[in-house]
C-alpha cells in the first residue's frame, strides 16, 4: 500500500493565518475574491450554455495565483494549464476579456479562438493555458532559456497540476532547467487529485517537491496553499533566486479544489469523500484571511460587504460585456493559422 500520509495544509503550514500589512491584505483578499465570484458566475454561465467545452474551475486554489502572480513584474512571464481563469485574472487580463473568451466572443483575450483552456495575452506576457498535461513545462523552460539568452532578469512562472510530476516532459524540462540554470519557478498546484486519481495512487513519492532532488541546484519547497501569506513568503525567495542567480525552483503548493475536476464531474465525486471536502472548506483561503483581518481589526464587516458588492458589480459587468460582444465572424476561421508572410 502507498503511504497514508496526506498533504495537509494545517500540519505543513509554517505561517499562522494572521493578518499582515492591512493595505496589502486588502489587496490580496480582493484578488482572491474576484477569482471566486468570477468563477461562480462562470459556473452559472456554463449551466445556461453560454460557456461550452471543457471548463475547469479554480475555486479553492485562489491563494496560489494571488500569492505568486501578484509579486511579479510586468515583464515577467506566466504560463499554465487549462485551469487558467484565476491566473489570467490575477495577471491582469480584464474580467471582461476573460469572460468574453469563455463566451467564445471576439473581444475575448484570445479572440474567441481559445476558450476556457486557452487564455493568452501578449500585453501581460501571459503565455497561455495549455491543454496537454505536462506539455507546457518544457515551453516554460524555453521562456527561461530566452530570458537567459538575452541576459535579462525576468522570471517565468509555470503553474501545473500534481499529475504533471509523473509525466516525462516534466522531468526533461526540470533536468535542462537545472543543467542550464534557467530562471523558472515550477509551481505544482497539488490539489490532491488529477481528475479522480489521488496523488497517492499516481506518484511514487510522498512529497512531490522531492522531485527536485533529482536535479542539481534545484530547490524543492512545500507550501501551504490555503494561506496566501505562506505562498507569498515562500515564493518571494524563489523569485529572488531566479532573478538574481538565474536558478530554478520547484514549489509544491498544497491546495484543494472545491469543485469537480471539470463541469461534468460532481463536486465530491466517487473518488473523494464529502467529509474531506468539508474539512478543506474550513480552510478556505479567502474566508480565513477575511476572518483574520476582522479579528485583527483591519477589516470591518461593512468593508467586507462593500468589497463583495464591488466585486459582484465587476463580475456582472464582465458578463454583460461578454454577452454583448459579437461572435467571431466566419472569416476569422482561416485567420491566425499562420502569420502571413506573403507581404
Amino acid at each position: 500500500m502507498a503511504s497514508k500520509k496526506k498533504p495537509d495544509p494545517r500540519r505543513d503550514s509554517q505561517s499562522l493565518r494572521v493578518a499582515g500589512d492591512p493595505a496589502l491584505d486588502r489587496e490580496l483578499l480582493h484578488s482572491m475574491l474576484l477569482q471566486r465570484r468570477f468563477e461562480e458566475k462562470v459556473g452559472e454561465a456554463y449551466a445556461l450554455g453560454k460557456v461550452g467545452g471543457f471548463c475547469h474551475l479554480y475555486i479553492g486554489q485562489e491563494a496560489v495565483s494571488t500569492g505568486i502572480i501578484a509579486q511579479l513584474r510586468p515583464d515577467d512571464y506566466v504560463i499554465g494549464t487549462y485551469r487558467d481563469h484565476g491566473q489570467a485574472l490575477v495577471r491582469g487580463i480584464t474580467p471582461r476579456a476573460v469572460m468574453a473568451e469563455l463566451f467564445g466572443r471576439i473581444d475575448g483575450c484570445s479572440r474567441g479562438k481559445g476558450g476556457s483552456m486557452h487564455m493568452f495575452d501578449r500585453h501581460t506576457n501571459f503565455l497561455g493555458g495549455h491543454g496537454i498535461v505536462g506539455s507546457h513545462v518544457p515551453v516554460a523552460a524555453g521562456v527561461g532559456f530566452a530570458i537567459k539568452y538575452r541576459g535579462g532578469d525576468q522570471v517565468c512562472v509555470c503553474f501545473m497540476g500534481d499529475s504533471v510530476v509523473n509525466i516525462g516532459a516534466f522531468h526533461e524540462a526540470l533536468n535542462m532547467a537545472a543543467l542550464w540554470k534557467l530562471p523558472v519557478l515550477f509551481v505544482i498546484e497539488n490539489n490532491r487529485y488529477g481528475m479522480g486519481t489521488s496523488v497517492e495512487r499516481a506518484a511514487a513519492v510522498d512529497d512531490l517537491s522531492r522531485r527536485a532532488d533529482g536535479y542539481k541546484g534545484m530547490d524543492g519547497v512545500v507550501i501551504d496553499g490555503m494561506d496566501v501569506h505562506a505562498v507569498r513568503t515562500a515564493t518571494e525567495a524563489a523569485i529572488a533566486r531566479a532573478r538574481t542567480e538565474s536558478l530554478p525552483s520547484l514549489l509544491e503548493v498544497r491546495t484543494y479544489r472545491f469543485r469537480g475536476h471539470s463541469m461534468s464531474d460532481a463536486v465530491s465525486g466517487t473518488y473523494r469523500p464529502k467529509e474531506e471536502l468539508d474539512e478543506y472548506q474550513t480552510m478556505d483561503p479567502i474566508f480565513s484571511l477575511r476572518d483574520a483581518m476582522v479579528i485583527a481589526g483591519t477589516l470591518t464587516v461593512a468593508e467586507w460587504d462593500a468589497m463583495e458588492h464591488e466585486v459582484a458589480a465587476t463580475v456582472q459587468d464582465a458578463w454583460d460585456f461578454a454577452d454583448a460582444s459579437p461572435e467571431p465572424p466566419p472569416a476569422a476561421l482561416y485567420e491566425d493559422v499562420l502569420v502571413d508572410t506573403t507581404s
Binding site: I79, G142, V143, A146, A173, M176
Partner: peptide, 12 residues
C-alpha cells in the same frame, strides 16, 4: 524537452 524549450524560446 528540447523541442518544448524551442517553442518557449520562440514565444519569448
Amino acid at each position: 524537452g528540447f523541442s518544448g524549450i524551442g517553442v518557449g524560446a520562440a514565444m519569448a
